[in-house]
Amino acid sequence: MSVYNTVWNPHTLPSDDNIEGNQYAFSIDLNQPWFMSKGAMIAYYGQMRFTALTHGLQGSLLQMVAQQFSAPLYMGDFVVAEGQGKLVIGDRGYDINAYDLDDGNLTIRAANLLAFQPNLSMNQSIVPGFVTLIGTGKFLASSNGPVLFVEPPVRVDPEALVGWSDCPSPSHHYDEAWVNGFIAAAGRRLGVNSGEERQFDFTGAGTVLVQSSEKVLNDSSIVRSIQGQLPGLSLPGLQQINQQISQQLGQHQ
């Protein structure tokens, strides 16, 4: 029988691994709490409970979240899965991979982070749309296609970037043609259209994770980050942003 028409059960599902022949689903042998992205659960065997971080937390669970989850912008995106059994997760048909941190740190796009063990702590990154995991433990991430691991110095398309480990945060790099065009337009053009014009520039030691596609899985966290800055802007600043949004919308029509 092919792995594509195998009927799985709690005894044949793998323990903390991708289901055989299926890079789109991952089976967790749940015996301790896990932080998990909302909507990632597709099936489970056993007795489990899924508690939102924004309500219903009590006792040791509340203490665990307070100690390990220092990313208030993303609290509404995660739940705590606890109980005993086999937990199968997926992410809209995207590839899923498991990674192990050993007393390390890794910054990852929040939309790609599916689940992580509670001995890892999660902090908000200074780069909008990204979070940082610190400590020792396992986490799961999705990607649009297989992930490449590359060493700095390297420049990466922003939409293809999944994350980076043990190296400084990237800086923006704009190619010469774009800069010349910006100057010639007397500052009227504030946006960019593709990764060929704008890249993330990584230097120093470490590892950069790049997915095999120029497609961001979800940009809702970046939108929330921008929204959080709006109350502090002046009227001219809001008008300028409104103008830029109108220009960007026009380019997509």
Rank of each mutant, 00 (worst) to 15 (best):
N144C: 10
G187Q: 06
V216L: 12
R198C: 08
V162P: 03
E197I: 01
L217C: 12
I222C: 11
L217H: 08
S225R: 11
V147E: 01
S171K: 08
S171V: 05
S142F: 03
I183V: 09
R189M: 02
A141D: 01
L217R: 14
S221Q: 06
I222P: 04
G145E: 14
R155A: 09
H172I: 00
N144K: 12
S220M: 15
G137V: 00
I222W: 07
S225L: 07
G195P: 05
V156D: 02
G195W: 07
E159F: 04
S220Y: 10
G195Q: 04
R224M: 07
V156Y: 01
S142Q: 07
W178L: 07
H173V: 01
Q199L: 05
S221G: 10
F149G: 05
N218L: 12
S212Y: 07
R224Q: 10
H173N: 07
N180I: 06
L217E: 04
P168F: 00
S143R: 03
G191H: 15
P153E: 14
I222K: 14
K138G: 02
D157Q: 08
G137C: 02
E159N: 13
R224F: 08
A160C: 12
A160V: 09
I183M: 12
L209S: 01
N193S: 10
G206A: 14
S169K: 00
E196D: 08
F182Y: 14
V192L: 05
S220C: 11
R155T: 08
S143A: 13
S225V: 06
V192G: 08
E176F: 13
N180T: 11
H172T: 10
P153H: 13
H173F: 11
L148A: 10
G187W: 03
R189P: 02
G137T: 03
Q227F: 13
V162L: 15
